[in-house]
């Protein structure tokens, strides 16, 4: 089913374009050409942020932080197995998937921790990556409260993941 969405989406744009007598090939290449220059704007900030994220992930800092904050998350009813996932989720999408994968290997996907981890993956995004890439294409360097507000959304997501699983599935 999900393999149909993108081809149908693109196909619909094409069919409607032809019906409306749009120069589809010419417009496509014009639009693509404009995006090339814009894309190069992202590269410098991508290199900076990915170096910082890569070094931090490799340092084992996440495991140490998990140990430090586990008393707090116990209080909120957030499963211990999911703490590394919550910590890595905002900074690395592929890292979060790897942690999710290892959680599902250790516990059943239908256990409490397995379900909470699934909801976390399904309902949050890679905040720092998104901010780095989205602002990277602009000349904006002062992002004001963009990070604080996005992390508020992430934190709400983590708490609610545990809460909704307890309410509806346990």
């Amino acid at each position: 089913m999900s393999t149909y969405v993108i081809p149908v989406f693109i196909g619909l744009i094409m069919v409607i374009g032809i019906i409306k007598k749009v120069d589809v090939f010419g417009e496509f290449t014009d639009g693509a050409k404009e995006s090339i220059g814009a894309a190069f704007e992202i590269l410098p900030s991508l290199i900076a942020l990915m170096t910082a994220i890569g070094m931090f992930k490799a340092s084992g800092g996440l495991d140490m932080l998990s140990g430090i904050i586990s008393p707090l998350t116990d209080l909120l009813g957030f499963p211990r197995e999911c703490i590394p996932l919550a910590l890595i989720r905002p900074i690395s999408g592929s890292g979060a998937l790897a942690v999710f994968e290892s959680i599902l290997t250790e516990v059943s996907p239908d256990s409490y921790a397995g379900r909470v981890a699934s909801v976390v993956i399904g309902s949050t995004e890679t905040t720092f990556y998104t901010i780095a890439v989205y602002y990277g294409i602009t000349k904006v360097r002062n992002t004001r409260h963009a990070i604080a507000s996005s992390l508020t959304a992430d934190f709400t997501g983590f708490i609610l993941s545990a809460l909704t699983v307890r309410l509806f599935l346990h």
């Binding site: 744009i13 374009g17 019906i19 409306k20 417009e27 014009d30 639009g31 050409k33 995006s35």
Partner: peptide, 17 residues
């Protein structure tokens, strides 16, 4: 991805989608 979707976006705009 940006070139590809930038191009499709342009068609979608011209076609009124």
């Amino acid at each position: 991805g940006m070139c590809m979707w930038g191009g499709l976006m342009r068609i979608a705009e011209k076609a009124g989608i």
